Amino acid sequence: MERGRTFVLRLETGEVLHEVLESFCRKNGIQNAYVSVVGGIGEGSRMTVGPEMPYEKGIVPIVFKLDAPHELTASGTIFPDEDGSPMVHIHGSAGREGRAVTGCLRTGVIAWLVLEVVLIELIGEGAVRKKDKRTGIKILEL
């Protein structure tokens, strides 16, 4: 893949990170991208912080809900799913008062005050997120 356009986005309080990114990609014809995120996320934001154990019968996510605004740093990718829609996969760490939580942000991270994103388009074909029969999760295939 080659580097394409670079975009800088600013999310406002209340906007949901993965929803904004996927919508932006659809509107701008972006199928593949790398993203870097920094800023504040709000109370009620949810992060997936691991699978419940044991997971032989399937992946059951553990969802952690933030009880106050946190600082965030994160990075991830955007690739199309089987229907051709851009799908975000992003992990990060959120901290407050010396404590941190790390996980997947796709569960519903809400911008607080300001959340900045640098999105770098990747040009090329072949990468797609397909539903894995064993786990039920859409996994990147190259």
Score class of each variant (00 low, 15 high):
L113E: 14
T107E: 11
G14D: 08
L119K: 06
W112R: 11
Y55T: 00
I110E: 04
P61E: 10
S45N: 05
E82M: 00
I110S: 06
N28T: 05
D132Y: 13
L115S: 09
P51Q: 07
F64L: 04
G58W: 11
E43N: 05
G103L: 03
H91I: 08
K133L: 15
C104H: 14
L66R: 11
R129V: 08
V37M: 06
E56N: 08
A33I: 00
Y55K: 08
A100K: 10
P54C: 05
G126P: 04
Y34P: 00
R10V: 11
Y55V: 00
S85C: 04
G29Y: 08
S93Y: 03
R5C: 07
E71T: 12
Y34R: 02
G126T: 08
R106I: 02
E141A: 13
Y34H: 00
I62K: 15
E52A: 08
V118K: 13
L142C: 11
G40R: 12
A111Q: 06
G40L: 05
L122H: 14
N28R: 05
H91N: 09
G4S: 13
T6E: 12
C104S: 11
C25A: 08
I139T: 15
T73M: 07
I120R: 15
E82W: 06
V63G: 07
H18P: 01
D132A: 13
M87S: 12
K131T: 15
L113S: 14
G4W: 12
E12W: 09
A68P: 03
G124D: 13
T77D: 00
E141M: 12
P86K: 04
L21E: 05
M87D: 04
